[in-house]
Computed example of a mutant assay.
Amino acid sequence: MAWRSVGADNADLIRKMRDYGIIASDSVAQAMTKTDRRHYSPRNPYMDAPQTIGYGVTISAPHMHAFALEYLRDQLRPGAHVLDVGSGSGYLTACFLRYIEEKGDDVNTRVIGIEHQPELVAQSFQNLNADDPKMLDSGKLIIVEGDGRKGVPEHAPYDAIHVGAAAAITPKALLEQLANGGRLIVPVGPEGGEQYMTQYDKDSEGKVKETRLMGVMYVPLTDLHRS
């Protein structure tokens, strides 16, 4: 992606991405405007580039989060179950919940973030509470420590799954946890090699269709020991 921008503040960053067509819908713009990146990215929160959040981990560039919301927006409905694999500092997980709540309130809504770095799990709790403690208090947003490659079966099936790191091959466990009618987006490809943001759609009968969306470069999807 060649486009880069720096916003004066969060609202300015989102407005620029909307103007340039990075954000295609008002609903995505609203969710990202309400979720100020300064709570989740201590360095250069309004620069459209990946930023370090500590422990050898980066938060993705804002335009990639915008694309994730756009790709999944039809599945982000009140009452949906959503899984954010590699939730990091909690930013996109919060955006998912805010997007859904703009559409309507439903006590059955569950947005699950799973992160294998225990320090980032603790940090994400702090970030979410600094942003708005009602997100965690509601029980609709849950942060789990664990190996995201295995998903979180207890809250499956998921209407939408986002993966924030590259799987070497199609992640079968996540596909198994995808609901009929659901969508999974995940970078697929080897570390340092050719990777593609890939979309998997499961139809009403459980048949899966795979679509390559764009070339990307992500860190690998691993456990805490990079295995």
Rank of each mutant, 00 (worst) to 15 (best):
A66G: 10
Y218W: 07
I53F: 08
A29L: 09
A8H: 04
F96Q: 00
A8T: 04
I142F: 10
K134Q: 02
R226V: 06
Q117M: 14
L184A: 10
I169V: 15
K140Q: 15
G104P: 03
V28L: 03
H63I: 03
G21Y: 12
P78M: 14
G54V: 08
D74C: 06
T35C: 12
A80N: 10
A68S: 10
N44G: 01
L13C: 11
P157I: 00
Y71A: 06
E119D: 15
V163G: 06
A94Q: 02
A166F: 00
G56R: 04
V28N: 02
A61M: 15
E176A: 13
H65K: 11
A165D: 01
G192I: 11
I169L: 05
S41V: 13
M214R: 14
G54F: 08
A2K: 10
V6Q: 02
I59L: 15
G192P: 10
G151F: 00
M214A: 14
S60G: 15
P78S: 11
S5E: 11
I23M: 08
T93E: 14
G79L: 12
R4D: 08
A94H: 07
E145V: 13
A8I: 04
S89K: 05
P42A: 09
I59A: 13
T109R: 10
W3Q: 13
S27R: 08
V107T: 08
I185Y: 00
D84K: 03
D203G: 07
I100R: 00
A8G: 10
V111H: 08
R149I: 04
S25D: 10
R98H: 03
L69V: 00
T52D: 12
G148L: 02
S227P: 03
L83S: 01
Y91F: 14
Q75K: 15
A49V: 04
L97Y: 07
G54C: 08
E70C: 01
Q75C: 09
E115N: 15
G206F: 06
G206Q: 07
G139T: 12
S60H: 12
I23W: 08
G215F: 09
A24D: 08
H116D: 02
P45I: 04
L13S: 04
